[in-house]
Design a protein around this nucleic acid. Structure first.
Length: 424
RNA sequence: GGAGGGGUGGCGGAGUCUGGUUGAUCGCACCGGUCUUGAAAACCGGCAGGCCGCAAGGUCUCGCGGGUUCGAAUCCCGCCCCCUCCGCCA
């Protein structure tokens, strides 16, 4: 959520920034400014009346104490009370409308995020050379089928399309990746957390997924809960309504959870294998940091993601995502895309976003200390390992002609000593 | 699921029965100062947030939302959460 004061004081700056996202913000901003104006108007009026009532109520108390008659004052205040009630109702209406509008405005992109849509994203750099195969490389599903490692048919029978069973050595590979990721992040000061995957609407709104991405989320009607699409949600909500001690910043977590996405609107896209499924596991990093430190923290997160892909020996490229392709809460985003031999292109495996104070304002996560305060923090999130997609990249990049997978050395300490298809 | 108890400032804990200058007594923690070679102790001062406002100031918040009342932390209703006991259970 944006600061209404910013919109009030610098509407042109907001308008310009939203244009870089390709948003047609004109009518929404005008409406916001109008609602803000009438809100303050009614607020002053109702507060004046309250002030009067408070003062006279005190006089009534004094009069009663002195055994004097105060019935005329009581009658007058009864009238004032009615007026307050009516003004209050109007104020609430205005505030609800203002809130509703404000919730729909996405974060302002950082100047360093390229303007425009998906095609305007900028490739920053590459790492590693795509491997030259002496045979025709298979895609991850073909490799999996040789050893019965991924079962899409039975997944579909049990749960529908885009659900899979992961079997055999891939299960060990999954936990090796998770363990590898958790240990690395813990060594860098991220506190491991296993988070609730069912959250209240509050957490979804607070992180900016609602109302924008309502249709992407599995909703449990009976309990009013939502299945999270990323542990970013419960991690961000972890310090909701709290004022942190400035000396503890940055506060960093690494979360592990299953993620659930409806993938509405993705029909026909990436239908093969486990690249895009309704349920997957992910290790995610999250940081609450001082506002002036967030660009630095963002680069730090990207460097961790790069370090991991490098240790896994997966060729990738880093992309600075264009403003129009950012999620609503993000001001800037980097994606890392790993090379997939079967598709002969780079595909997203990690993503990290600087959400500046957008989530913190909604969630009321603040800090105070020498700089004073309380002031809003900045929040950042990043993929450490999206397990499914990383497994795909490892399978495809490390496949051998006879259908084995020669897992990267970095993972071997976390794998069983003997496996049938992992080449160890 | 059944029965009870409870949610007050960073923490502890008053106030709720008997509504009235109580956004809230007190203690601890914390910050600043005096004293001290330094520290501790003692003493003095400060110390929850939101909103409106240039400011002065006003207003709201005692889990959340409604109601009663001239006036609600205090009374009434609904919801959320926590704790104890019983039942069930990975």
């Amino acid at each position: 959520m944006l600061d209404i004061k910013l919109i009030r004081n610098e509407p042109e700056r907001v308008r310009e920034a939203l244009r870089r996202r390709g948003e047609h913000a004109e009518s929404a901003l005008d409406k916001l400014l109008e609602l803000d104006r009438s809100r303050r108007e009614v607020l002053v009026e109702v507060e004046d009346k309250r002030s009067l009532r408070n003062a006279v109520s005190e006089q009534i108390a004094q009069a009663k104490k002195a055994k004097e008659d105060a019935s005329d004052k009581i009658a007058a205040m009864r009238q004032v009370g009615e007026e307050i009630k009516q003004l209050d109702a109007r104020l609430k209406e205005i505030e609800a409308a203002l809130e509703e509008e404000l919730l729909q405005v996405p974060n302002l992109p950082e100047p360093s995020a390229p303007a425009g849509g998906e095609e305007d994203s900028v490739v920053m750099h590459h790492w590693g050379e795509p491997r030259k195969f002496s045979f025709t490389p298979l895609d991850h599903l073909e490799i999996a089928e040789k050893h019965d490692l991924i079962d899409m048919e039975r997944g579909a029978r049990t749960s529908g399309s885009r659900f899979a069973y992961l079997k055999g050595d891939l299960v060990f590979l999954q936990f090796a990746l998770v363990q590898f990721a958790l240990q690395k992040l813990a060594s860098k000061g991220f506190r491991p957390a296993i988070v609730p995957v069912l959250v209240r609407d509050e957490a979804m709104y607070g992180t900016g997924f609602f109302p924008t991405d309502l249709q992407q989320v599995y909703h449990i009607e009976a309990d009013g809960l939502n299945l999270v699409g990323t542990s970013e949600v419960p991690l961000a909500a972890l310090h909701m309504d709290e004022i942190l001690d400035e000396g503890d910043l940055p506060v960093r977590y690494v979360g592990y959870s299953t993620c659930f996405r409806r993938e509405a609107g993705a029909a026909g896209k990436d239908t093969r294998g486990i690249f895009r499924v309704h349920q997957f596991d992910k290790v995610e990093m999250f940081s609450f940091c001082a506002p002036e430190k967030s660009p630095e923290e963002h680069d730090f997160m990207r460097s961790i993601e790069e370090e991991i892909l490098q240790e896994l020996g997966l060729p990738y490229r880093a992309v600075n995502i264009a403003a129009g392709d950012l999620g609503a809460p993000a001001a800037k985003k980097y994606d890392l895309e790993a090379w997939l031999p079967s598709q002969e292109r780079y595909r997203e495996v990690t993503s990290c976003s600087n959400c500046t104070d957008y989530q913190a304002r909604r969630l009321k996560v603040r800090a105070k200390g020498e700089k004073g305060g309380p002031y809003l923090l900045h929040t950042l999130n990043g993929t450490v390992v999206a397990v499914g997609r990383t497994i795909i990249a490892i399978m495809e990049n490390y496949q051998t002609e006879d259908g084995l997978i020669e897992v990267p050395a970095a993972l071997r300490p976390f794998l069983p000593t003997r496996t049938t298809v992992l080449g160890i």
